[in-house]
Design a protein around this nucleic acid. Structure first.
Lengths: 219, 219
DNA sequence: GAGAAACGCGAGTGATCACTCGTGTTTGCC
DNA sequence: GGCAAACACGAGTGATCACTCGCGTTTCTC
């Protein structure tokens, strides 16, 4: 009965080990992007990282742990990206500028980490990641809801939730389109168009109560 | 060299066989929905259909063929659904009614065939389905583009394409939200909200050239 | 520089998967 | 009724996958 410690692993890592982990996660991201989580084999990940299967299993107990660690790191970066998007001073911006401030970092992050959507979107992924994703999703929704509540203080909470949900869903749909567009002017134009959707959808919502009544004339 | 016929299969099917095929496709749809295409095993599909693995392979040469046949049938139904959505008389409707006429059948179809999105959306699916889906996608985009061109005849083609792309992307994002909502009043409210997004986005586009200048007051 | 521990390897292992095959049953046709 | 073909079965087969293990190498610590 003694020594019932369930301590995970007081394992000392060397610098080489940390490097290998980063290398393996990068390889896993590539393989997950191209083949998806389920069809990605651990041997393929090891091969992509130019190491043996045994080496991979020195750092990760199983395939799911790779995805969880990768997802966790991406989630952390994502929180930073959207943390700087929802600063208090942005709350006072006019709607188009606010949308710029919120949307740009999120798009930038997803463009540079396409594996994020690949991991979060599939219904094939392990439950652990889905939970973390749900948390992040709920957190983002709450922030959008706060924003709407700030512009329209007396909105019913169910309506506010519905608008936040729809805003986020529209963003996700547009984000997929942005990621599908080739980098360059075409992608930029798609981003502009996505922001146009959001502005036109939200302007009447916030415009009713805030002081941004008239839409600017289109060129 | 003689008998170089590549005839697929002049196989005579009995009524029992046709029934089995429908039964197997239904079972496959269930399994694909819950586990995804890659993780779905042919044995699991056979079990869901209460037949033996050997019976399954009497009607389908391999796992991909099941998905292709299922996708093909869904695609056919889908074309019917959106064929009745883009009838010429709908072209003359005011924007909100037009959106009702186009969006409602598509949502209805996807609600009753959730496996459709599951098959079309994954990046894990066999190439054959992706091709068919691309065709359908392009066809739908063209219809939306025609619609925009009808309302705004002198719009530049690249801008028209971008608007059609974004409209469809927004719809897909909202559709995911609709499918995630529980059936009943909540789903209906989500559908209404999705239509609101589309109307607000497209109204300034078509309003510039057509005769629907003023938005109705919101209650 | 010697011992310990982290690192690295790759053939091997058991499980699972897509798919086959030999055999028995049902159906359509004369 | 009898024959041929379609239907149905489920144990079996080879391939592949996640994961292990024994052993050799590098790095840290003293």
């Amino acid at each position: 009965m003694s020594e019932g410690f369930a301590e995970p692993k007081p394992r000392r890592r060397q610098a080489r080990g940390e490097r290998r982990i980063a290398q393996l996660l990068q390889a896993a991201a590539n393989v997950f992007c191209t083949t998806g989580y389920t069809a990605a084999s651990t041997n393929a990940i090891a091969r992509e990282a130019s190491v043996s299967p045994g080496t991979l299993y020195q750092y990760f107990p199983n395939k799911e742990a790779i995805a969880v660690e990768l997802g966790g790191r991406l989630m952390h970066e994502m929180r930073e990206a959207h943390g700087q998007a929802f600063t208090p001073e942005n709350f006072e911006l006019p709607l188009p500028d606010l949308i710029d401030a919120v949307v740009d970092p999120l798009i930038e992050f997803n463009c540079q980490n396409p594996v994020f959507l690949a991991l979060m979107h599939g219904s094939e992924i392990p439950g652990r990641i889905a939970e973390e994703h749900d948390e992040l999703h709920a957190s983002l929704l709450a922030r959008v809801g706060d924003l709407i509540g700030h512009y329209v203080p007396d909105i019913p909470s169910d309506e506010r939730a519905r608008i936040a949900d729809m805003t986020f869903a529209v963003f996700k749909g547009g984000l997929a389109l942005v990621l599908a567009a080739p980098e360059g002017p075409e992608r930029e134009a798609t981003i502009v168009e996505l922001k146009r959707v959001l502005v036109r959808y939200l302007d009447p919502v916030v415009g009713d109560a805030a002081g941004a009544p008239e839409p600017p004339p289109r060129p």
